[in-house]
Design a protein around this nucleic acid. Sequence first.
DNA 1: GGATTCATGTTAGAAAACATGACATGAAGG
DNA 2: CCTTCATGTCATGTTTTCTAACATGAATCC
Lengths: 128, 128
Amino acid sequence: MKEKELRRSLAVLPIGTVMKLTSLTARQIRYYEAQELVFPERNEGNRRMYSLNDVDRLLEIKDYLAEGVNVAGIKAIYDQQQQAAQAKEAAQRQPLTDEDVRRILQDEFIRQGGLGHPTPGMPQQRPL
Amino acid sequence: MKEKELRRSLAVLPIGTVMKLTSLTARQIRYYEAQELVFPERNEGNRRMYSLNDVDRLLEIKDYLAEGVNVAGIKAIYDQQQQAAQAKEAAQRQPLTDEDVRRILQDEFIRQGGLGHPTPGMPQQRPL
DNA sequence: GGATTCATGTTAGAAAACATGACATGAAGG
DNA sequence: CCTTCATGTCATGTTTTCTAACATGAATCC
């Protein structure tokens, strides 16, 4: 499985190819990057190079936008996903101590309680 | 299975990417094309565009050359493969008539017998 | 030994692709 | 009406790729 994952994350496609694969304009693709929705690599000559995963993400972005979700919303979704993945990874490295659990719960309450400003860089928690 | 096949044959990689993936120089890659060992597509701007299959083939070519097989040899191998594939495909479309079989066998004999010149475009049959 | 062939390197000049930055715009919403 | 958002368009500069030509070292043939 690691093999395929690696292939899919290899940055080998120039923006022209990505345009065709996604039917997006260069302007759109660069804009989504500026909004931190995708993170293409750069080659030695500063050209953006995309992976298949990047292409998938761009198609996803396109779908979200078509559904009426705006860029900020998409970013929130991705931030949330990334945070979840990160947490899971950390959890797997070593089980949490009671101390950790307490701190995490405390953070949760602080955010949910709406005290103070939303922490910058933290995804907004939408009330159900 | 058709899905994957399609993906692998999509011409999406510029020569610069292929250079990195294969550790070949642009000169080498273009030379192999001139010798009809690979057949990259061209985009609207006349730039060569390669598929993953093309990359595999280039790596294969590299191996053959390292083994001491020269370009003509590699070409013969590929021509043979292609002919075999073609024959198989034709065979599957409709079983051969006796007439076909006779003609094919006759062709075989002519070539094996060494009468006349080797048919141009035909892969050489190496005697065992 | 000298001439060829093969696979590749190197160079030059032109065209295509891409980068960045700025200004323009139509739709939506307060 | 004014702003914001997502995108279009244009100008200018750099990078990548193209073709064509000449150069070269190793092997092969006469």
